[in-house]
Amino acid sequence: MTMENEAGAEAANRPAPADRTARNYGDLSRVERIIEHLKREWQLYVLLLPTIVWLLVFLYKPMYGLQIAFKDYSVFRGVAGSPWAGLEHFYTLFGNDQFLRALKNTVIISFYGLIFGFPMPIILALMFNEILNQMFKKTAQTIVYLPHFISSVIIAGIVMTAFSPSAGIVNTVMGWFGVDPVYFLTKPEWFRPIFVGTGIWQEAGFQSIVYLAAIAGVSPTLYESAVVDGASRWQMMWKITLPSILPTIIIMLIIRIGNMLEVSFEMIILLYQPATYQTADVVNTFIYRQGIQGGQYDFAAAAGLFNAVVAFVLVMTANTISKRYSRTSLW
């Protein structure tokens, strides 16, 4: 007899705990039931605890400070001691050309990111899935995952070097065809393509992992059945793989829309300069300059709060639409 069997037999002899609680549950009040439940499952809650503490300390406690968006905040009086200012900062915000410009840039850059950046990992995953040579597949995957692990500062350095008018590879190649050097990073019209392209280069590979995992979950018999039915690889990709990972794509899209206003802030800070503010300055960099550098904490908090509310509305809307039309939703 194996150990497992012995353990199994022993478990069978013990009265089942579920049975005991099921019999008693009817007599307990709600609070007693919760206590009973906690007593039984406390280990699970201990596992959960670090995350809850992290959420409270880093996400909920700072919310207390949000109120300065409605106050005339002074560092010396503190959050509680500063007088209320109502919606004054919001009026100022919407009367501020720089903020409106930053808002417009945020929306445009996010939109480009969504249009060009969102499909890339899906396309990559579908392409990886078609590679039959395992060696080639793994090498290719490693190469496209790599930029994700490089610090943004280094990435920005690489981009700046690549687009440099004197030594950059881009201008060098253009030079071979007799094109005069272009000072890409000082030209407002070039900022968005360079920024969105950098984002894709850095993250598309890594994001494709999610889709590869989803593809791995598709039952192989679906493909076998399609092979017998006479489907080509191309037809299988369109008619099986893509529809099968659609729920994952939708979930990722909802998350992406929720983060739409969270344009990669450090990358912008690293790449932009006053010459390109007109196309590059986004809400987060605006907040950074006003709040941290300019010391207008209350005004910056108002901008940040506005950003958060818009993000909340976006993710709720996307989720509701998706739930209604595709039966897939984040919650």
């Binding site: 039952s219 018999t221 679906l222 059945s225 008619k239 099986i240 529809p243 099968s244 659609l246």
Partner: peptide
Amino acid sequence: FQNYALYPH
């Protein structure tokens, strides 16, 4: 097939 191999979508 044993597990039907139906397309869920």
